[in-house]
Design a protein around this nucleic acid. Structure first.
Length: 422
RNA sequence: GGAAAGAUGGCAGAGCGGUUUAAUGCGGCGGUCUUGAAAACCGUUGAGGGUAACACCUCCGGGGGUUCGAAUCCCUCUCUUUCCGCCA
């Protein structure tokens, strides 16, 4: 959520930013400013009244203490009038506060200067590509998985439903190896390892922006009003809800492995074949809380980390800087990582690394104390997948097939304990 | 799941209707003293809104109520602790 003061003071900049996103409702900005103006006017009014009422109450107290009952009673009458007036204004004030909030939650983050205008995925900029994929004929991963009995989609179907695969034997071992590999690499890069709750409350879902707009994406446990996390970003970032950090604690780098749960309502076709899109999957997430002056250096550092992971897995990939129209609601700049799946001749997104600037921090009330100004200031939050498992597994199965089985990349062999998966 | 007690500033901890505009201690910061440090002493030290700067307003777990006036009384929710029960 953007800060209303920021919108008020940077109206033109905000509108330009929304244009880069192809945002459909730029009139919300004018509305927000208008309502805010009215709200502040009422606030001044009610505060003046409160101040008067406080003074009267104090005088009444003094009169009572001196035993001057008549004077006290006279002042009481005066107070009653003020109270009626105040109640009136307060009602309007809270209405306006709600309506300004309702407007603000509909306004997406303002893109960073490097982000290009664009409407859809077609307009994304490729900023890196690892070179041509190996040539030859490749089977799609679901065939490879079936051949070697690595994943039992039917069993998962029976136990739960589609999108909940059962990993078997070597397939399960590969998953565990990848999780450990990713976590170890993150720790080596300076991230502290956490293990988080997989269910979160409403406040947390709201804090990272899943609520109110992405309600349908999450599994909701209605009996206890909890949500299954769609990503470890939610619990990890909410560690810092209502927290004031010291400047020297930044950048704060944390990581966690978690299962992730997504309803993925409305996804069909080849998109959901095999491991391409699941309701439950595993992911190692990295989260950084950064000083606003350094958050874009931090973003580049995260990109370099994710890049090194994919390189160590010896997979062909590319990095895209998302255009305004394809970027998530809360992000100021996002890099997507896509690995090539030659069995399907398509790119699969395996990581998305974003800088949210103060957009999440504002909702979370995540601040740090600025040493120069001595004041609290919103921090920047960033996160990224490092990495999401299923599509990495799919890419390994499709890229590293040999007549003997699937070749395990050298970096991963210490974790699997075998060089060929069959 | 049952019973009882409790939730106050970075921490500890008073306050239970009007000198609380939150005591006191610890910690933090600044200063005096000192060659330097420690000790001692003095000062300072929550967040948000608002202002050119003051003033001023809000916040004592959340929400609601009583009252001229609520940290203090009432209702309600949440959480914590202790005891009992159940349990990986």
């Amino acid at each position: 959520m953007l800060q209303i003061q920021y919108i008020r003071e940077n109206r033109e900049k905000v509108l330009e930013g929304l244009k880069i996103r192809n945002f459909k409702n730029p009139e919300l900005i004018a509305q927000a400013i208008l309502v805010d103006e009215e709200r502040r006017k009422l606030q001044t009014e009610t505060e003046t009244i409160k101040s008067e009422a406080n003074n009267l109450a104090r005088r009444i107290g003094e009169h009572f203490k001196k035993g001057e009952k008549d004077q006290a009673e006279a002042l009481k009458l005066e107070t009653r009038l003020l109270k009626d007036k105040e109640k009136d204004i307060d009602t309007k004030l809270s209405e306006l506060t709600v309506s300004i909030h309702d407007i603000l939650v509909q306004i997406p983050n303002i893109p960073y200067s490097l982000v290009k205008q664009g409407k859809s995925a077609e307009d994304n900029e490729e900023v890196f590509t690892s070179g041509p994929a190996s040539s030859g004929t490749f089977a799609p991963h679901w065939e490879v998985a079936a051949k070697h009995k690595l994943i039992d989609f039917e069993a998962g179907n029976k136990i739960t439903g589609s999108g909940f695969p059962l990993y078997c034997n070597g397939g399960a071992k590969l998953q565990r190896a990848l999780i450990n590999f990713f976590l170890d690499e993150a720790v080596k890069a300076g991230f502290s390892e956490y293990q988080t709750p997989l269910l979160v409350n409403e406040e947390s879902a709201y804090g990272t922006g899943q609520l109110p707009d992405k309600e349908g994406q999450m599994y909701h446990v209605t009996a206890d009003n909890l949500y299954l996390i769609p990503t470890a970003e939610v619990p990890l970032t909410n560690i810092f809800r209502d927290v004031i950090l010291k400047a020297e604690e930044l950048p704060l780098k944390i990581t966690a492995y978690s299962s992730c749960f997504r309803r993925e309502a409305g996804s069909y076709g080849s998109d959901v074949r095999g491991l391409n899109r699941l309701h439950q999957f595993d992911k190692v997430e990295i989260v950084i809380v950064a000083h606003p002056d350094h958050s874009y250096n931090t973003l580049e550092m995260m990109v370099a980390h994710v890049k090194s992971l994919i390189e160590k897995l010896e997979l062909p990939f590319r990095i895209l800087r998302l255009c305004g129209g394809d970027m998530g609601f809360t992000s100021a700049m996002t890099y997507d990582f896509e690995v090539f799946a030659p069995g399907q001749s398509r790119w699969l997104e395996v990581s998305s690394v974003s800088n949210f600037e103060t957009f999440q921090a504002n909702r979370l009330k995540l601040r740090f104390r600025n040493e120069e100004t001595k004041k609290t200031q919103l921090a920047h939050t960033l996160n990224g997948s490092a990495l999401a498992l299923p599509r990495i597994v799919a890419a390994i199965l499709e890229n590293h097939q040999t007549p003997e089985g699937i070749r395990i990349p050298a970096a991963l062999v210490p974790y699997t304990g075998f060089e060929i998966l069959k």
